[in-house]
Write a protein that binds this DNA or RNA. Structure first.
Length: 578
RNA sequence: GCGCCGGUGGUCUAGUGGUAGGACAUGAGCUUCCCAAGCUCAUAGCCCGGGUUCAAUUCCCGGCCGGCGCACCA
């Protein structure tokens, strides 16, 4: 780990932001516990997200269980698609995707859907060798590795359940209920902040790749034909865009406004462009250094199979770019899958302005003919006729029509099918919404903010470390100190502390050691303001308020202090204007 | 999952085949009093298991954890 990451994890552990889980038992890779500072910081980031992406957008929020039954992930594709087949080289120990080796060496196109045994046999048949060292891999076991954590629901063997690998499925699966709640009116957005779990092969880099992590996801359901985002609200926001084309041809990040990006077609999807415009000021609001930030478009080969386009918000920490958010278009992939697997209706009914008349082929089979003719199969023949009429009305042009039921052809005189063209009135249609998905990794944002807010400077010749966290997300808003803990100063300071807490402020009280040391303690956890009770306080009921970033102090009357500090926290008042 | 390197108080580290020393931090006290001052005292450590040995924190093996590289990251 390079310097930035090292000093960050040192500070995080020492000051209670985050640390390895269950270190007493040797720890466990890929799991981190947020300490007192970190948990509050994370809460504040989530609150800021909720404010911007739920409350102010008028979306709704849900909270679904972390464990879902197997069927959900069969439908979503995670059960198969989240499964990697690995084969290890006996010589050099390199680990390879077995299905990829087979696809490269044979004309098999979709080895991923085959059984591991079958893939192993193909490796032997085609004498596939280790790409790293050339040793034959025949006979080496092909092992499946699914990135989902499995569990059982209920006693005994129970039924299979999985910890969700993304919070999104908890939204998609409930779509019928949520659409009903939204009174079947598109567009609407459903958000969820919650934990997701992936049994990563190799967790790395502190909070960046972990096995249990918090996502803040928004699924915005839109009518693909009609709905347009309110681009004008964000048209002037500047986006640092690193397009797929730029990545492939040695280009660089381009600064374009949302309006320009759409105009030039750099961001093809207006909804994605809209959310990039919403998100950009938000990152700045929570303390991301926008000079170490970019939007990177997925390369064609990187795209998920359901995604037409995807942009990641990336932040630079330690020389690496961290994927902090994915802005994806998922089209109707998930809703279609759940509709297919569950048999439920994952669409909304869109009423036309005016009902329209349409001609529709219908059949009304004469069962007194079909019954005697086909016996028990008569019902199925009738169904087959109905679906044929829908698909291919021209089939009924002749004297007879033939349908297949269970591989048996049945021929029916057209006049017995009751075929006709009927004029019906349609008052609307079923629309399957498309989904725009901004998906935020909360832990990665917390990590970024800590890294980007880490500052050092000199105060009276002494080096100082402080976290320049925005007051809104700082875990503690104000430190309260008596200049000395005697002559009644401590009691006065306790009064101030109580008053500030009662006003809903996050307060840290500290009376240990010298005043300078207490300032430095609060600096290191990013507390933006400190209030000190001194001898003047006893006479004139004022205190000093000290600003973290400038270390400047101002005298402020105790009366009105809670309101002043709240205004400072909420950004309604700047310290310089005190 | 593989390879290389590593693991000593809360943190950073010194050192050793005979179980450890410092700095910072923390707590108590004195002192000082608006930016990590000083003094005294105190708390606190050799990742886990097995082996070799009279004796293992030290050497060997395995595990766990971490860093880096490879692979992986719908």
């Amino acid at each position: 780990m390079t310097e930035e990451g090292a000093r960050l994890s040192e500070l995080a552990k020492r000051r209670g932001f985050f640390f390895r889980t269950a270190a007493a038992y040797g720890g466990v890779a890929g799991f981190y516990t947020y300490g007192p500072q970190g948990a509050t910081l994370k809460d504040n980031v989530e609150a800021a997200w909720r404010d911007r992406f739920v409350t102010r957008e008028g979306h709704m929020e849900v909270s679904s269980p972390d464990v879902m039954p197997e069927a959900v992930f069969e439908a979503s594709g995670h059960l198969d698609g989240f499964d990697d087949m690995l084969v290890d080289c006996p010589e050099c120990g390199a680990s390879h995707r077995a299905d990829h080796l087979v696809e490269d060496a044979t004309d098999v196109a979709d080895a991923e859907s085959m059984s591991p045994q079958a893939v192993g046999e193909l490796i032997a048949e085609h004498d596939i060798a280790c790409p790293a060292c050339g040793v034959a891999l025949a006979g080496e076991p092909v092992e499946e590795f699914n990135l989902m954590f499995e569990t059982t629901i209920g006693p005994g063997s129970g039924s299979a359940g999985y910890l969700r690998p993304e919070t999104a499925q908890g939204i998609f699966v409930e779509f019928p209920q949520l659409a009903e709640y939204a009174r079947n009116q598109l567009p609407f957005g459903v958000a969820q902040i919650g934990d997701a779990y992936r049994n990563e092969i190799s967790p790395r880099k502190g909070l960046v790749r972990v096995r249990a992590f918090t996502q803040a996801e928004l699924e915005h359901f839109v009518d693909p034909e009609e709905d347009e985002p309110p681009i004008e609200r964000v048209a002037d926001v500047t986006l640092p865009l690193y397009s797929a084309q730029a990545q492939q041809h040695g280009g660089e990040v381009r600064e374009l406004t949302v309006g320009e990006a759409i105009e030039e077609g750099v961001v093809a999807n207006d909804w994605i462009a809209y959310y990039l415009g919403v998100a950009t000021p938000w990152y700045e609001r929570i303390g991301v250094d926008m000079d170490r930030f970019r939007y990177r478009q997925h390369l064609p080969g990187e795209l998920a199979h359901y995604a037409a386009d995807c942009w990641d918000a990336e932040t630079e920490v330690d020389g690496d770019w961290i994927e902090a958010t994915g802005f994806a278009t998922r089209a109707d992939y998930d809703l279609a899958k759940h509709a297919e697997h569950s048999g439920e209706d994952y669409s909304v009914f869109k009423q036309y302005d005016e009902p329209i008349a349409v001609e529709r082929p219908t059949v009304d089979p004469d069962m007194s003919v079909l019954g005697p003719e086909f016996g028990g199969a008569a019902g199925e023949v009738a169904d087959a006729l109905r679906s044929l009429a829908e698909r291919d009305p021209d089939a009924f042009d002749g004297q007879e029509v033939t349908v297949e039921v269970d591989d048996t052809a049945h021929t029916v005189p057209v006049e017995a099918t009751g075929f006709g063209i009927e004029e019906v009135t349609e008052s609307g249609e079923h629309v399957r919404p498309h989904v725009i998905e901004p998906s935020f990794g909360v832990g990665r944002l917390v990590y970024t903010v800590l890294a980007h807010c880490y500052e050092t400077d000199l105060v009276d010749g002494d080096e100082r470390t402080y976290l320049a966290l925005p007051p809104e997300i700082a875990p503690t808003t104000v430190g309260v100190f008596p200049l000395m803990d005697k002559d009644g100063l401590g009691e006065r300071a306790r009064d101030v502390e109580r008053e500030l807490r009662a006003a809903g402020l996050a307060v840290a009280y500290d009376d240990s050691g010298a005043i300078g040391r207490r300032y430095r303690r609060q600096d290191e956890v990013g507390t933006p303001f400190c209030v000190t009770v001194d001898y003047d306080t006893l006479d004139d009921h004022t205190v000093t308020v000290r600003d973290r970033d400038s270390t400047d102090q101002k005298r402020v009357a105790i009366e009105g202090l809670p309101g002043t500090l709240r205004s400072l926290r909420d950004g309604d008042l700047a310290f310089a204007d005190l």
